[in-house]
């Protein structure tokens, strides 16, 4: 975990804490998330029982817009989109179908989409936000934390956004002051929620 600036596992049982340190390390590595996480603090108290994992992410890649992966050719009302990277084709089609209706979106082959639009619309098309990678990274991160946590902790609360994320989980109802506990763990990292 050299890539992570701060990584602590806090646990009243020392042996158990050491095992979970290794588990967290392996899981984040397996899920290719080690480069995403800047700081991570895990707190496990098997007596309560309570699992808190909170952390800070590195700067994530920005929103992918249409011009990032496709070329636009506008001839009067006819707009031809040539796809360069197929990875974002599916989300793009979903957006276009929703916006203009399936009947108005022609796709003669896999890499070409033809639309008939007004001038105003076709000008703004280049900046159309298609895909937000941070969303899926946060989802992956929360999933990885669920793999790390002791099994059977079915009561969960999670949060992500603004470079921060946390997951708290327990077998029983979460304590009312759970957000204070999370804040306290963030302050240990020198961060605030």
């Amino acid at each position: 975990m050299e890539a992570v600036e701060y990584f602590e596992v806090e646990c009243p049982e020392k042996a158990g804490g050491d095992y979970y340190r290794r588990i967290a390390d392996v899981v984040l590595l397996d899920h290719n998330l080690i480069r995403v996480v800047l700081k991570l603090h895990i707190f496990i108290d098997p007596k309560v029982p309570l699992f808190v994992a909170g952390g800070v992410t590195r700067k994530l890649p920005g929103i992918i817009r249409l011009r990032d992966f496709a070329d636009l050719n506008i001839q009067e009302r006819k707009v031809t989109i040539s796809i360069g990277n197929e990875a974002y084709l599916a989300p793009l089609l979903q957006i276009l179908w929703k916006k203009y209706g399936k009947d108005n979106v022609e796709q003669p082959d896999r890499f070409t989409i033809i639309l008939y639009l007004d001038e105003d619309e076709s000008r703004s098309l280049e900046d159309l936000p298609v895909f937000d990678p941070s969303e899926s990274i946060y989802k992956d991160l929360i999933y990885a934390l669920q793999v790390i946590q002791p099994e059977g902790f079915k009561v969960r609360r999670q949060y992500y956004g603004n470079g921060r994320f946390y997951l708290v989980a327990s077998e029983d109802t979460l304590p009312e002051d759970i957000e204070d506990i999370v804040r306290q763990k963030f302050s240990l990292m020198g961060e605030s929620l």
Partner: peptide, 17 residues
Amino acid sequence: INEHDLAVYLLGDFETC
């Protein structure tokens, strides 16, 4: 489990649990 000769229980990392 009782149909076997022996049962190996693989439990977790915490004493309390």
